[in-house]
Write a protein that binds this DNA or RNA. Structure first.
Lengths: 341, 341
DNA sequence: TTGTACGCGTTATCAA
DNA sequence: TTGATAACGCGTACAA
């Protein structure tokens, strides 16, 4: 691989001039600039990004650490982030924490070591530690889930979405809805359970907590929780499910038992997965604006990065306080939640 | 951020000793090593990955460039790759080319600049240019799709899978199957069409090509192609669809027209998407071993990397010739392809 | 076994 | 406007 030195030799100028010409510094003699570009092209020169980063103490990449690549909700976020990033000249490094706090921590460390210029994170647990990153001045924005410590974040209004979904089930005449939600430490899992419980309380249904199951945010968890609920002494007649992966698991179990949605059991799930409209009884869902979440988060990050550049380590003003963008959800009623007899 | 120098000062040794101690060089006095580790921990030292990479001329990250993050087939591959990578101490940088050759080229360039130690790629088109990477000695393995130039690759046997799927439709009594496949330059799109055409030929069905539609590998493409086929003079009575995204689009169009799978029209699609079993008429599919593809590809890459390390730029032997791993597919028959009357 | 000193490829500073 | 040169932080010959 040719280096800047090779280009300099071939163009008959110093490395400094090459660097300036290639980086578009205006004060370079156009004639020399032309020679430099020609030489670079002839040699197939490509700047060594690593050396550049070392010197600039910053890279043009962001890390996007999501909790589960297999979940279409998160990949939609990724697209939103990516579109904004590309536009602004950044590349995004997508990391899959796989709902595993240890994996997440590893990626957080990689991000730190690699001098990424920003991190977008959907924290596996509310206690995820971004302290080191923050300390080294790397802007962090959380998506989908927030942390216990305050930090820029873009969230959907889970609690309200869950409340409305549950209320909708109740209004349809289902008497005993249960809730299958994610791990206790996941912010969204708590919020959605909260919305569910509030709706039950509002309708004077007692002992709501006994109708809640916490599990991992994956299909297998959804299946197990469904089985457990149905095998209980007083089984539910409807399900509020906290994401589309869990819904897939619930569907499996219901199908295995020959239970038909909308007749034998009602269901609403979070996330409008691409398949939701096509299953036997099309699935009613709480749709989150996933792509927009990605876009907004990327904008927040961009803001922080440019703000940091303006205030380079000395401090003519404290950094802006953390901002939270809360986006609304939309209840899409299809067949699974309607009561047929 | 503390540097190696800070650690050295605090431990009362030279930077060389710190480097050696932290990298586990055995010749370091255990006492000093202990002091070094203590100092590092106390300062919260973390090696600057960029500086390290510059010096070592290599990083411990791989780039995995996939054609579409929203497609569960590719995310399953990603998991396979990741599991092997983690095990071997590598991080994987997931890049989403989004079926866009230009985006893919950008990521290829990022990979080159960032000195990743290996690249896994599902090429958007057979003509994707990996020449520069290869020239700089970065091992490349393609997954799912191959390139026109020979290179390590892990593929599923698309043609055979397509052949069997089509034959299955014919055996079920569907008379006029059509094929919706991906872009002309995508390797899998061609292979699957080939398998389809071979099956038609075998059953003496003429003018097979008029029953093929090329489109992008996304839901919107699937929908359009379906509409076009159904509106044609002599519409098909069954569909062979080349991936699960296209299938989603086809499903949309069929639903909109009130056509029921298995009664009005037959269908088999590539890829056993998580939802395939749950739609109204459960979808018959050609399942590809996606996770295994990822695992095998990662192993191939690992092989190349270690081989390259043993033969560091001098050449006591030519590099091993490109290897191709071809994995089998499995036809899963559900309801959508069975002929009901 | 330890420390000194150099080089990795860039960018940024400074003097000319 | 240009060029020489000093960093950036780390790993490693080489000498001690």
């Amino acid at each position: 691989m040719p280096t800047i030195k090779d280009v300099a030799e071939r163009a008959g100028v110093s490395v400094a001039t090459v660097s300036r010409a290639l980086n578009g510094v205006p004060s370079v003699d156009p004639v020399l600039a032309k020679r430099v570009h020609a030489a670079a092209r002839a040699l197939g020169y490509r700047a060594n990004g690593v050396a550049r980063s070392l010197r600039r103490r910053q890279t043009d990449v962001w890390a996007l650490i999501i909790s589960d690549v297999a979940n279409p909700f998160f990949t939609a976020i990724a697209r939103g982030v990516e579109d904004v990033a590309q536009q602004a000249g950044y590349s995004v490094l997508l990391c899959n924490a796989d709902e595993d706090a240890a994996k997440e921590a590893r990626y957080l460390e990689v991000a730190e070591r690699s001098l990424v210029s920003g991190v977008l994170l959907s924290p596996t647990i509310t206690g995820s530690d971004i302290g080191r990153l923050q300390a080294s001045g790397v802007p962090v924005v959380t998506v989908d889930r927030n942390l216990s410590e305050p930090v820029d974040s873009v969230l959907a209004d889970s609690a309200t979405g869950a409340f409305r979904a549950t209320e909708h089930l109740l209004e349809q005449g289902w008497r005993r809805p249960a809730c299958i939600t994610g791990p206790r430490q996941a912010a969204t899992a708590e919020d959605r359970m909260r919305g569910f419980l509030d709706a039950l309380a509002r309708h004077r249904i007692r002992r709501g907590r006994s109708l809640v199951r916490h599990t991992n945010y994956r299909a297998d968890g959804g299946r197990e929780a469904t089985a457990e609920l149905l095998d209980a002494a007083d089984p539910p007649d409807a399900l509020f499910v906290a994401n589309s992966e869990l819904a897939l698991g619930a569907l499996e179990e219901l199908t295995a038992r020959g239970l038909r949605l909308g007749r034998d059991i009602g269901m609403v799930a979070f996330d409008d997965a691409p398949w939701a409209a096509f299953i036997e009884a099309p699935l009613s869902v709480v749709a989150q604006p996933a792509y927009e979440i990605g876009v907004e988060a990327a904008r927040l990050l961009l803001d922080r990065i440019t703000a940091a550049r303006k205030r380079p380590s000395d401090h003519p003003g404290a950094p802006a306080p953390p901002r939270t963008v809360l986006l609304g959800t939309r209840l899409i009623v299809r067949e699974s939640s309607r009561r047929h007899r």
